[in-house]
């Protein structure tokens, strides 16, 4: 069963179309990351999914419930961690956690708060006022507040923005633990390495449209993974002739023959059939940053065409 289903969702702000027909499926128990530049529509989509906003058209379903019809039931199942930590600085960490526990009607508040504080390494700081917390601790407390009440879907809107590397790694561990506990995590981030490290599935949103989605590996492979092969020096001309004759696109680079994922296998078998000696064969996997740039540049070029 999908935790989240989004079908043909649009959202306008006046004449500005922010979401232009979004379709998404997020499986239960996975970390799903929505990647996109500022203004791409990430927060607008999160607002719709967390019942803060309504779509112009299209449908949304969370754990089988329509938030426009069963808003309070949906809110029982989700939690939102916004871009900025929403804490009371004058209160202690424990008091901040207790506030959410009371609002969610948790019966055994002490036990739940203690368990969540342990998971997020906050136990030693719970009785300190939040205004004395570091940025990373504030973020961890904010996420801890989101976990009160055992929500099935946790929305994390850029949770590591402005967090130092050490705390960032600690937050990554916590996010994985949420997934490992069977919860669904819907993450947005500006950091491509973060999406790569954490996500089970990724979607790129650009100008209100999902332009690419899949697992991190699928996306990287599908878009820009290149294969390089080197033939024996004596076979170089023969290799050129064989590939050209068979209509296989390639580029002759400094390190050998460069091929795309779509023609690499055909090129390899053709060259081997032609008795050409291949000395080296390598796969250069793209990182998400190059995928992201590839996608956004291509979309921009399409718009200008």
């Amino acid at each position: 069963m999908n935790a989240i289903e989004v079908r043909a969702v649009t959202k306008d702000f006046g004449k500005l179309a922010v979401l232009k027909g979004i379709n998404l499926d997020v499986k239960q128990g996975e970390i799903f990351t929505l990647l996109g530049a500022n203004g791409a529509g990430k927060s607008t989509l999160i607002n719709i999914l967390t019942t803060l906003s309504q779509p112009q058209s299209g449908t949304v379903s969370l754990m089988g419930l329509d938030p426009t019809k069963a808003g309070n039931h949906v809110r029982e199942l989700i939690s939102l961690n916004a871009q900025t930590a929403t804490l009371d600085g004058e209160f202690t960490g424990a008091e901040n956690l207790r506030l959410i526990a009371q609002l969610r009607g948790i019966k055994d508040q002490k036990v739940e708060i203690a368990a969540i504080a342990t998971r997020l390494d906050l136990t030693g700081f719970l009785n300190r006022k939040v205004k004395t917390y570091s940025g990373g601790m504030r973020r961890r407390l904010d996420i801890a507040m989101s976990l009160i009440g055992d929500p099935q879907i946790v929305f994390l809107d850029e949770p590591t923005t402005g967090v130092d590397p050490q705390n960032r790694l600690a937050l990554w561990r916590s996010i994985r633990e949420i997934r490992d506990a069977g919860k669904t995590v819907f993450l947005t981030t500006q950091y491509l390495d973060e999406a790569d490290a954490l996500s089970d599935h990724i979607a790129f949103i650009h100008d209100g449209v999902i332009v690419k989605h899949g697992t991190p590996e699928e996306i990287k492979q599908r878009v820009t993974t290149t294969y390089t092969l080197q033939v024996a020096p004596n076979d170089k001309d023969a290799a050129d002739q064989t590939l050209t004759t068979n209509g296989i696109d390639y580029t002759q680079g400094e390190h050998g023959i460069s091929l795309t994922a779509t023609n690499a296998t055909k090129a390899l078998t053709t060259l081997l059939s032609a008795q050409i000696t291949i000395e080296h064969y390598d796969r250069d996997e793209a990182d998400l940053e190059s995928v992201f740039l590839n996608v956004t540049n291509r979309e921009a070029a399409n718009e200008n065409a």
Partner: peptide, 14 residues
């Protein structure tokens, strides 16, 4: 401005 109202709006509170 801190986003606390959004957090409250995403909780099961009338």
């Amino acid at each position: 401005t801190s986003g606390f109202l959004d957090r409250l709006h995403s909780l099961p509170i009338p």
